[in-house]
């Protein structure tokens, strides 16, 4: 062990820039096991669950009652795994931020970047790019595999059919926004269990609660709830009391933006 602190390497005195913070956050994301586990769970859920459901449909097609057949939609059926994938992606989004609080890493991070906000933007950006790319691939694979299974009964659709590309890639966008909601809420509550509870409270519990509203209210309110708004992008034919695909997605994205802004305010104001 050396006794004297030598600095043989000339250390360049660089400034903190947003690009450098992005590099730092990219290193952080790719050097944790939890990143790989959660994303793998999401990919397996997308593809595996999609194929399973398609197989169940295909094998029962001959005996399926006509109303059920009329309601069937090949593209959505093969993408049903997103309901499970969103759990994994949401958890990863939360942990990208709260993992730093639970371990104390946040103090090292904010000592390196004392202006703080570049850290949150970089976390959100790195997470969003990684998630949207991987989930787009998973979504296309799930769609193709699912249609291959359905083709046994000749009930498959092609990617070029009207609206199909939109819901296939929309699934990746929806999942990414779920994760960003997690990043934002994670920055607000600073704890992993709290963050996860908030995300799924907003996504899953809120719509369930809204079911209890009188229908005259529910018809107007429910379509604006985060998950309902986001899921309009994943619907081939817009139903009554549902936002149009891109309006719905915009509303959903605004919830994530609001969570990120709230997270930014807390990050900037509160002691670390």
């Amino acid at each position: 062990m050396s006794t004297l602190p030598t600095t043989a390497v000339v250390v360049p005195r660089g400034r903190v820039t947003q690009v450098r913070v992005l590099t730092s956050e990219w290193i952080k994301l790719r050097t944790l096991r939890s990143t790989y586990i959660t994303l793998l769970v999401a990919i397996v859920a997308m593809i595996g669950f999609g194929m399973l459901i398609c197989w169940a449909t295909e094998s029962h097609w001959a005996t399926m009652p006509p109303p059920e057949k009329a309601h069937f939609e090949a593209a959505s059926r093969s993408l049903a795994g997103y309901r499970i994938a969103q759990l994994a992606v949401g958890v990863l989004g939360v942990m990208v931020v709260t993992g730093e609080y639970s371990t104390g890493m946040i103090r090292a991070t904010l000592s390196a970047v004392p202006r703080r906000l570049p850290v949150l933007w970089a976390k959100a950006a790195v997470f969003a790019v990684v998630t949207v790319v991987l989930m787009a691939i998973a979504s296309v694979v799930a769609f193709s595999a699912g249609q291959a299974v359905l083709s046994a009964q000749h009930i498959q659709v092609s990617l070029t059919a009207p609206g199909v590309t939109r819901i296939v890639l929309g699934t990746a966008l929806y999942l990414t926004v779920v994760g960003l909601l997690g990043v934002g809420l994670g920055a607000v509550v600073r704890s992993t269990p709290g963050g996860i509870a908030s995300v799924f409270g907003v996504l899953l519990v809120l719509p369930a609660l809204a079911e209890a509203l009188p229908s005259s209210w529910a018809d107007h309110v429910n379509q604006y709830l985060p998950s309902n708004a986001g899921e309009s992008l994943l619907t081939l034919h817009t139903e009554a009391h549902q936002l149009t695909p891109w309006t719905g997605f915009l509303v959903f994205a605004l919830y994530a933006v609001a969570a990120l802004v709230a997270g930014a305010v807390v990050l900037k104001r509160r002691d670390a």
């Binding site: 660089g14 730092s24 993992g99 890493m105």
Partner: peptide, 20 residues
């Protein structure tokens, strides 16, 4: 003040990246 799941090398690498 270290993420327990990350190696010492990667921890320092991530901090180092913030100022190049």
């Amino acid at each position: 003040a270290i993420h327990t799941g990350r190696s010492a090398f990667n921890h320092l690498l991530a901090l180092a990246a913030t100022t190049g």
